[in-house]
């Protein structure tokens, strides 16, 4: 959710939205009818230990040496919180018999089946689509435009290695380049 769309602006809303959705499911002013009440009971039983477990997992991920730097405090406290989450699960949420423990696994093939059907359906739909005709070649104007972009980027990377500074903003670059193309239309760009 935090990765969807223009994530720099939209990801800010992901956590509050998740929290809002969760609260709307858990907090009710009136009694919830069956069968939704069964789901709600399961959710309340699961929420406590999963919340603590996710906190521990986050701390372990921060502390683990994924990017060459280990943070022992976060790592140790994360594993301790994970241990507490397990204790909470075993004390309050764990099923009483082995049958109760393993029966929910029946849902796994149920979840996978529509995904497999969906994958085959997408494959079928993609294969049955007619192949598009080859795109026409670039004309001279378009070639000049592409060449100018590439040469400008090459100049910039060279300037970056030699320590030079190039002050052109993207918008200006585009307008400069299009005006140059208009002037040079039909001929080859000087920058190439």
């Amino acid at each position: 959710m935090g990765r969807m769309g223009p994530s720099f602006s939209r990801s800010k809303f992901s956590f509050p939205l998740i929290l809002l959705g969760f609260l709307l499911m858990v907090v009710h002013s009136s009694p919830v009818p069956s069968p939704e009440s069964i789901f709600l009971t399961t959710l309340r039983n699961t929420a406590i230990w999963t919340f603590i477990a996710s906190l521990g997992i986050t701390l372990v991920l921060i502390g683990a040496p994924t990017y060459y730097r280990i943070r022992p405090m976060q790592l140790i406290s994360g594993w301790m919180i994970i241990g507490i989450a397990w204790m909470l699960y075993l004390d309050y949420s764990a099923p009483l018999t082995w049958l109760e423990f393993f029966v929910p696994l029946a849902i796994v093939p149920g979840i996978l089946l529509p995904i497999v059907i969906f994958a085959y359906a997408v494959q079928f739909a993609e294969r049955s689509m007619p192949i598009l005709e080859e795109a026409p070649e670039l004309n001279q104007k378009e070639r000049d435009f592409v060449t100018s972009i590439i040469s400008r980027n090459l100049r910039r990377s060279e300037a970056a290695t030699s320590g030079e500074q190039i002050n052109d903003r993207p918008g200006e670059m585009l307008s400069k380049s299009s005006s140059r193309i208009d002037r040079n239309s039909g001929g080859e760009s000087n920058e190439s």
Binding site: T46, L105, G110
Partner: peptide, 20 residues
């Protein structure tokens, strides 16, 4: 539909320890 979705949701929550 309500029963099936509730079963699905509850089942998903119950298999969380395995995923964990």
């Amino acid at each position: 539909t309500r029963i099936a979705l509730t079963n699905g949701g509850s089942g998903l929550l119950q298999i969380l320890p395995f995923a964990y």
